[in-house]
Design a binder for these strands. Structure first.
Lengths: 197, 197
DNA sequence: CTACTTACTTACCAGTTAGTAAGTTTTTTC
DNA sequence: GAAAAAACTTACTAACTGGTAAGTAAGTAG
């Protein structure tokens, strides 16, 4: 049996190490910017070893998105997230993006894949759509409750505001990559100013 | 002499046709998703002909961004744009993004290049930074005047709001690519609702 | 102890990549 | 109309791409 998720930090198997490295490269340099050779060299294995775990790059890419989707669902349902007040849930979301910034200014999954979307394998496209839809629906719910309970303020529908906010956050990480961390902080500051009642 | 900009629609020379096609492919499929062979085949010339006009792909990419920057400056200074009221200038900006949407849901230049930014040649990086900076400064000015004259409303500084709005627009085109036109319209609708007094 | 499975390596492959050097045709200049 | 410059084509490379087939070493199950 593989060692995919048990509690403590067991030494990750090759399968996981491949996925971790591919994720890093995806979020720091883009999907078309790494090859099986790159991965193999850095992991100290032969390219064919990667094909053994992920027969094609499509499979690898799809596994990447699928894992992120699994993480999103897990995070969203975590008691320490699900039980927060809406305005705190919003702050928790911002913390996730801030964390990306802290890791070599990684963009988010969506921002990494959107531009090349049409060149991606269908399974990846489909998973990414689901990822974005579920995240948006979650935030819409947070915003709806937040306005009802008075902790958050905004015009328009929760769904529209959620789409706008997430789009802004994805873009903000991209701007941080092109310039530096400052514009990200400015944009997030603006979001807080407008939303927090 | 080359035929780069004269008034009417002269038949575009190869140099321009290369740039036009490369731009289309960049905005519709991403920078790493096309090669000199692709360009050559579709233009009915040999790959070496492209190397003749743009010795390396770096040169081609840089020429692409440089042209966009030139267009931005030209557009911004056009009487039919510069002489508008701020709220109309904002609408003119939205029209540009809406036009991208209408052309096969192209993303904007920034959105096309941000994810792979670190893999781009330095000259391209630098030009893209300038492009984004000048656009942001222009919008900040529009927003500042717009609030002073009462046509636009928002919290915070013009610079912060400008960064936020442009980031949102870039992201909105990416979301449109991943899903469909609907989320773009929703997000732009939200921007209008909030900004137009 | 044997059979089987897992996780690889070695050795390929055909196709594509960006890029170059040398020659040829077309256009411009004088 | 000759010389020169511009705009190509032909022919080639070396490196890399994702991917496959066959072999092997180590662990696991009965």
């Amino acid at each position: 049996m593989t060692n995919q998720s048990s509690a403590a930090a067991l030494p990750p198997d090759t399968r996981t190490r491949i996925l971790d490295l591919a994720e890093t490269l995806l979020l720091e340099r883009g999907f078309n910017a790494f090859s099986y050779q790159h991965l193999a060299k850095e992991l100290g294995v032969k390219p064919a070893a990667i094909h053994y775990h992920y027969p094609s790059k499509d499979d690898l890419g799809t596994a990447l998105v699928t894992r992120q989707l699994r993480r999103l669902r897990k995070w969203r349902d975590l008691p320490r997230v699900a039980d927060l007040k809406p305005e705190e849930q919003f702050e928790a979301l911002l913390a996730v993006y801030d964390n990306h910034l802290g890791h070599e200014r990684r963009v988010c999954l969506f921002g990494a894949l959107a531009a090349d979307f049409r060149t991606l394998p269908p399974a990846m496209q489909s998973e990414l759509r689901t990822f974005n839809r579920e995240l948006t629906e979650w935030l819409a719910q947070v915003l709806a409750v937040g306005r009802a309970t008075g902790g958050l303020r905004y015009m328009g529908s929760p769904a529209a505001k959620a789409a706008q906010v997430l789009t802004t956050l994805a873009g903000a990480l991209q701007v941080a990559r092109v310039h530096d961390e400052t514009p990200f902080q400015v944009i997030v500051g603006q979001l807080r100013l407008e939303l927090l009642a």
